[in-house]
Structure formats: C-alpha cells, structure tokens
Design a protein around this nucleic acid. Structure first.
Lengths: 346, 346
DNA sequence: AACCCCTACCCAATCGATTGGGTAGTCAGG
DNA sequence: CCTGACTACCCAATCGATTGGGTAGGGGTT
C-alpha cells in the first residue's frame, strides 16, 4: 500500500513529521524501534499518533536512504549454478521464505558453475551492496571462498560444503550410506556408481558415503565401478554407457548421485535390453518430483531441500550478527520404489 | 573488485576527487556519462586521469546514494507462481541475462498463484523501490493488474497474457493449433484435452487454439472432452481418470497443455493397460527437458522460454523509457516423439 | 577596448533516514 | 530555593551521488 502525497511523491518521514508538527527524528525513533522505544524517545500518546498516521498515509521507509545512512541494505545475494536445476530452485524457495521472515530480500544469479561467472556475479552483487552472500555453487578447491574471506565478505555455503566454511547441506555421506545399506540388503553384490562432478561436495560425499559403507559391509567396489559425470540426463547416459562397456558381468545395481543422471541411466539400460527394477536396480538422489512419476518409479534419497535453503538463510543471518557458526547437515531419508524394490537375494 | 580505503570504507566519489584535487561533481560527471561528456564537463586529460584512478582504486558507485538522488534503483521485480516450475525458472534465466545486459538487477518472488501472496509480494517489491515489475502469474480476471495501473506502476506480463496489457508470451493459440493439425493428420478422431487452470491464458489459449482448429478440420470436441486441471503431475493424473471414466470409447489421443500434466496422464493411461504411443497418443506443452528423456519420449510443443524471459525484460525497459509497447507472441514449434508417432490412420 | 563565448571546472542543495548530542520543562528531594 | 533526574522532544550532521547554477580565465571579434 504505497501511498503518495498530493504532488505525486511517496510519503516520507518528513511528511509525517510536518503533519504532526514534530521533528522527523522523533518519527524515525518511534517507527524504527519496537514499541519499547516509548521510553525516552516519545510519549506513548505521540507514538500512537505517529503510528496511526503512518498507517493511514501508507508510509513505507525508503530503503535507499536508510541503507545509505546505516550501511546495511538488508539484501542478500544468492549464487547458484542454475535456477533451472530443480534442486536449487526449491532451496531458493526456502531461502526466500526465511528471508521474508527475517526482513531481508534476496537476489539470485546463475553462475553455470563457471569460475569466471562466479566472480562476475559476485561482483555485481557486491556492487549492489548486499549484506551477505549465500553460495550455492562452491567448488571443493575453495579458491572462490578464500577470496571472499580475504575481502571480508560475510557468506555461507548452501547445498555444497567446503571444509572450514559455514554451510547448510544435506548429510550426503549418510545419504550414500543409506543407499549402500539398501542395495546390499537387497542382495546386490556387483554395483556401479554414477558419481557426478568431482568438484562438488554433493557428488564426492555421496559417493564416498556409499563406497565406504559398501566396503565395510564386505562389498567390492573397484575403481572402474565409479564413473564421474555431469549432473544431467546426458551425463547419466554417458556414464552408463561407460559402465556397461567396461564391466563384465554387468552390475546388478547402479547408484546415481542425482535423479536426472539416474533418469539418463534408466534410458540407456532399457535400450540395452536390461529391465530396470528386475535386471538392474537404480537409485537416484534428491527425490525430485519426477522421481515418483516415472513409469518405473525411481528410488531416491530424499534430501530436505526446502529446509536446506531456510537453514542457509538463517545461518547467514547469524553470521551477520557476528556469531561463529558451524556447518549444518540435514538428514536425508531413503524412498524405496520399484526401480530397486526387486529382491536380488533370491 | 570492490576495493577499500585504508580505514576500511569502500571508495567514494569524494575519495577520488580529493586524491586528484578536483570536485566530486566533476568526477561524477566524468564517470556518469559515457566518454561523450568530455565536452563541457572536463578536459580529456582530466577525464582520463579520473577514469584511470577509478579503475585503480576499484571504485564502484553506491547504488543507494545514486538511487536516493535520482529516484531510480535499476531494480526490477519479478513475480512468478513458483520458481521450482521449470518453465518459469528458464524464463527467469532469460530475464537475468537481458537484465544484466541492460544494467539492471532483478528480484524474484514466488506467489503460488495465490492472490493474497501476489499482493504481498508486490508490496515488498515496491517497498524496495523497484523501477518496474515483470508479472509472471497474471490471472485472466486482471484485478491485480488494474490495481497496478491505478498505482501507476510500470509493468509487463510474461508467460501469461491479459488483453490490454503489454506481455511477452508464447503464441499459445498457434501451439494448440499445431497439436490439432498433428493429431488429426495422424488419423485421430476421438481426442481429449487436459486444459490446465482456467485462470491462466496459457491454458485457455492452448485449449482454444486446439479446439478451434480441431473443429475447423471437421473434428468433434464435446464439452466433456475438455478437462480443466492443475499444471502438475497430480493434476494430470486426476484429469486423465476423469477422461477415462467419462468417455466411451476412450479417446485415442490426449493433449495436455503442460508437460507435467502429460507425464501424469501417461502414468494413468499405463496403469489402465493402455500403451502410450500405440493405444493412446499423448502430447504435452513446453518441451521441458524431461520430455525427451522419458522411456516413451513425449511429443511436446517447444516454447521459446528463454526468449520469452529476455523479451519481457526488454519490453519492460521500453515501458520505463516511456514507449508504448505492444504484446509480443513468440512462435512455438512442435516436437514429435514416440508418444504420438504411431500412425492411427491405418 | 568592450564584449561575447568557450572551456573546465567549482558550489551547494538535495534525496530520506539515522543518530549523537543537546535542551526546555516538570517534579522530587534535601 | 537549588540540584539532579527525568521526560519528551528538537537540532544538525551524515551517508554518497547527482545536478542546476555559477564563474574565472583565455581567446577571438568588431
């Protein structure tokens, strides 16, 4: 309800002050701090009159002016590889929710996981004077992050973690373990992993969680059973071709660290005459909304994407408040569906 | 490359001016206008010195201060039903690209297609003093838009259009026609439409384009062959159940105005023992990335989503420049795949 | 010599909110 | 009656960039 004065400008503090015959600074103090400011700043009666008029005139403070003075914008920058990745889109929804609750607004930008773009987007955000950054595209090498630290910019990581920095992620190691337990108990002994991009902690942790647990269960997982790939369907297809070409006998189960890669894998398996669910089990990760909708519903590790976003925002807020924060890892759960429900122990 | 002075503040115009012994206003004029300002404002030599120093110190103008003075923020607000809808996410990528080229930054917010949220989000954006809005969630009744017009806020529509307002959309009517032509030429005569939400022009136009063309080809399309639904898989499933329950004989083709609804439809058809592609053709809309990846690849109308986003941003820029702009409808193309490739004319 | 016009700048107000530092006026206690 | 402590405000500087309105000095014209 932004209202305007007779001459077409938006209502300012001074307008309110003039109308009430008091000083703008008094109005500011009344509106700025909670009702607790009545002590010292103004009488209860005046405070009430001010608040009433502000409501009536639809006063909304000018964030430019406030920011200029306070050097805080209540803006947060969010950088993600791409928003058209469903996983990141949902996390962003979580961020937006939490940001609204905390009185912040957010910018998002896509970096396509390209270091050049990451820098460029970071710079645009800083030029906009954001108070802090949520980095959703961190690479494990961390060069990007060292620079931010050096420039003294408050930030937290989301989705992907890097040791030594605050982050909100899924417990990806646990996620990998859940899959290992599941496939092992279904009787599989010859498995392969479509591991994702080696620069992303999501890929590395999920793969490591799986591999370590698999070995501690007594399973074998030779080097060539782990194939690194892109996170999309095409990446999943290529990886699966590699797996099928390189292993004899073919694995009876495939764990893809990403649903879309898993979908690509299912396609290739099918076209090689292998029935997903009976000949070969497939498990994905994230439990994106398509997983359950496929003709052969895809087993997938459900990660709390919305919560990860919310948590990232809350962490960043705490960083801005000067707190020392620790990384947060949210627990995933496994959703078993047809694609891996066939019992191979028989 | 935001640099800071010795005492930790970011570099300002005044810093540059002091260092060069000239007045801040001169620096502003040199940096503000292109190189064409050398005439009148400053000597070429001074201009060069200023630009050089600005580069060296990593000067980046404070948008708060500039905005406070100029009353323009170079911020645009974008409101979409939800960013986790792939279609909108891609359009937003287009917006972001175009915005960067034009020197704007963008906010996105999700409204969930809920009028209350639409208002709330609009107000937050205006409180942030955005220069204009891109509305991606317009409802055909247009009450939301009348209010914006009344409040004198520059905006354009995206994805969905409403008569009388500038917009960047897909030519959805044409899209519907393409599907009608295709299904008719494949020999189908008994078809059904999963029509989407009746408040969205995308749904209405696609359905109308299909229905009108179908009838002009000589086809029949009774009222009960058109089922309105939500845009997601669940909506598609429900609609398909309705269709299968209500029609005898079953239709040999189904057009869903949205890929996700189409995916839901394929699931239900399959579970009713109908083979998609041979028993029943299915066509979706938008050609989102999953369409081609399904076990039975889905025919779909490809809409130029990225371009729609870019166009929306460019239109808005022109609106801000005071131009009178006309709605733009971008041409879609039909991608035929297995789900509707079976020739029923036989 | 008087006049005008450039060139290359400077000056100061302004945008709207915030904030450290007052100050009248009232009341109580000594 | 004086002092001190409140209460309820006011004042003015400030944040950084922009912009309409100067102006000094130099060169050219008539």
């Amino acid at each position: 309800m932004k209202e305007i004065t007779a001459d077409g400008r938006t209502v300012t503090l001074k307008d309110l002050a003039n109308e009430l015959g008091i000083h703008p600074s008094t109005v500011s103090r009344i509106l700025h701090s909670g009702s607790d400011v009545a002590r010292g700043a103004a009488s209860v009666a005046t405070a009430e009159r001010v608040r009433e008029l502000a409501r009536k005139r639809g006063y909304s403070p000018n964030p430019q002016a406030a920011g200029l003075r306070t050097r805080r914008t209540r803006l947060m920058g969010v950088i993600v590889p791409r928003l058209s990745d469903l996983v990141l889109a949902i996390m962003y929804e979580g961020i937006e929710e939490a940001a609204a609750e905390l009185g912040y607004s957010t910018f998002v930008m896509n970096s396509r996981d390209d270091p050049q773009e990451q820098r460029r987007k970071t710079d645009t955000m800083l030029a906009r004077r954001v108070d802090g950054l949520i980095i959703g595209d961190a690479h494990l090498d961390g060069s990007q992050l060292r620079e931010l630290t050096a420039r003294n910019i408050p930030f937290v990581l989301m989705n992907r973690r890097v040791t030594g920095y605050p982050s909100a992620t899924c417990d990806d190691v646990l996620g990998g373990q859940l899959v290992a337990d599941h496939l092992w108990s279904q009787g599989h002994r010859n498995v392969a992993v479509i591991a994702g991009e080696p620069y992303a902690s999501t890929a590395v942790d999920r793969t490591a969680g799986f591999a370590d647990r698999w070995k501690s269960l007594g399973g074998k997982l030779p080097q060539e059973a782990i194939v690194w790939s892109r996170f999309d369907t095409a990446g999943g297809r290529e990886a699966t071709e590699t797996i099928l070409a390189g292993r004899n006998p073919n694995p009876t189960a495939v764990f893809a660290v990403n649903d879309f890669a898993a979908i690509g894998a299912m396609g290739v398996l099918r076209s090689h005459g292998l029935a997903v669910g009976s000949d070969v089990a497939v498990v994905g990760f994230n439990d994106t909304s398509v997983a359950a909708e496929l003709p052969i519903p895809l087993s997938s590790v459900r990660s709390p994407m919305l919560d990860i976003g919310r948590t990232a925002m809350q962490l960043l807020k705490r960083v801005l408040d000067g707190e020392q924060v620790e990384p947060v890892r949210l627990k995933p759960t496994l959703c078993v569906r047809e694609s891996s429900a066939w019992d191979n122990a028989a």
